[in-house]
């Protein structure tokens, strides 16, 4: 089964590159590994027959957000010596926070019924037309709300970027 091998390959690459995001010494390498992770996730979307999501995922995450990340990291020229030391209490709080998110994830995955996914090759929900119809009929309110959220974020960014008049 070709798609199964592909799934294992993509998952392997995704997990390894996700780990490398944390383990890389140079921030640029971390960013590039994160980009690779996004590509493998896009591959997973394609395996689930959700081409639109896959491409949008690449455009938005790999093509725009990660480029901005890379841009910022390059400009800041981060390196190990320049990294400021975090206090022990900060590390402690971060560990607790991360652990709790991990617990929530495990809890969610445990209650998730795998069988409901069905055969991805038969579901056409990932195709543009069906997705658009679903978004604009069943999920119209959340869709519009999120667009308002984006708009407010954009306005906020413009406000922050404006020069101080004084």
């Amino acid at each position: 089964m070709l798609s199964q091998y592909l799934f294992f390959f993509l998952s392997f690459v995704a997990i390894v590159s996700a780990l490398m995001v944390l383990l890389s010494k140079k921030p640029i390498h971390s960013v590039l590994y994160l980009t690779l992770t996004f590509f493998t996730l896009a591959g997973h979307y394609i395996l689930l027959n959700a081409q639109f999501l896959a491409v949008v995922h690449i455009i938005v995450y790999a093509g725009a957000i990660m480029v901005l990340f890379l841009f910022t990291v390059m400009l800041l020229n981060l390196n190990i010596e320049g990294e400021f030391q975090k206090s022990t209490i900060m590390k402690f709080i971060a560990a607790i926070g991360g652990g709790m998110i991990f617990l929530v994830l495990i809890g969610t995955l445990k209650s998730f019924d795998v069988a409901t996914v069905g055969n991805p090759e038969l579901t056409q929900i990932g195709l543009v037309k069906n997705l658009g119809k679903t978004l604009y009929s069943d999920y119209l309110l959340p869709f519009e709300l999120s667009s308002i959220l984006f708009l407010s974020a954009m306005v906020g960014a413009v406000m922050l970027g404006k020069k101080d008049k004084q």
């Binding site: 081409q51 491409v55 949008v56 690449i58 455009i59 790999a62 093509g63 725009a64 480029v67 195709l127």
Partner: peptide, 15 residues
């Protein structure tokens, strides 16, 4: 002939 050809081109340009 993928049904999202335009988006594909766009993704390729963006990377």
């Amino acid at each position: 002939d993928i049904n999202i050809g335009v988006l594909y081109v766009f993704a390729v340009i963006s990377i």
